[in-house]
């Protein structure tokens, strides 16, 4: 099992080394905090099956621990009475569950067609260059930035569109890239 607490600094988001049931270990057993558990219990009242609460419960896990580790998968599986392998299968289908730790600011560049028409690929490459020649998905040495490419963010009128963690940013160009990055403390 690779990974564990001593993660390589250049971790590719969404493409971690393969562990026993596929997920990367965080090195310790995990359990929801009482507040998170309360939110999960509330979720369970909104669906006729426990399984239906899987996506929102994984969101709670990511909110608690920042990414979905092997131990997070195991805990979610236990709470929802599902097989860990099933949970991991669902995690890997969706792009937004981080399968490895990411930087404090997860910068997501849309490069789909409308943003492509506004040179999003160029801005994306320039952004990685200015943050120290980061590879796609790589986290900066200080742990502050991870830069990835994503598909359409439904902000095509604000091309090139960017998301940082949960927030939307409009019209990020090579010209305003420095002030955009400067604003991310």
């Amino acid at each position: 099992m690779s990974g564990g607490p001593n993660l390589p600094s250049a971790q590719i988001a969404g493409n971690p080394p393969v562990g026993e049931h596929g997920a990367l270990s965080c090195g310790k057993a995990l359990k929801f905090s009482p507040e998170a558990r309360k939110r999960v219990d509330h979720l369970l009242t909104r669906y006729p099956t426990k399984q239906a609460a899987l996506l929102p419960t994984l969101w709670e896990a990511q909110r608690e621990w920042g990414w979905i580790s092997r131990e997070a998968v195991d805990h979610v599986a236990e709470v929802l009475e599902l097989a860990p392998a099933f949970v991991w299968g669902v995690v890997t289908f969706y792009t937004m569950y981080n399968r490895a730790p990411v930087g404090k600011h997860l910068i997501q560049f849309c490069t789909s067609i409308s943003c492509h028409l506004a040179d999003a690929e160029g801005v994306y490459a320039e952004c990685r260059k200015r943050l120290g020649d980061l590879k796609p998905g790589e986290t900066s040495k200080d742990g502050k930035f991870t830069v990835i490419e994503v598909e359409c963010l439904a902000q095509c009128d604000k091309a090139p569109a960017v998301m940082v963690n949960d927030d939307d940013y409009a019209v990020i160009t090579k010209d305003n890239l420095d002030s955009f990055l400067g604003g991310l403390k």
Binding site: T49, Q51, A52, A53, L54, L55, P56, L58, W59, L80, L82, G89, V90, F93, Y94, T95, M96, Y97, V150, E151, C152
Partner: peptide, 24 residues
């Protein structure tokens, strides 16, 4: 109910699968 990043979940039966807590 929030999805988690998958274009195909806009297809109605994939959306249904996803809402049930499965791959879309």
């Amino acid at each position: 109910h929030r999805g988690a990043g998958a274009y195909i979940c806009g297809e109605e039966t994939a959306l249904i699968e996803s809402l049930e807590g499965k791959r879309g």
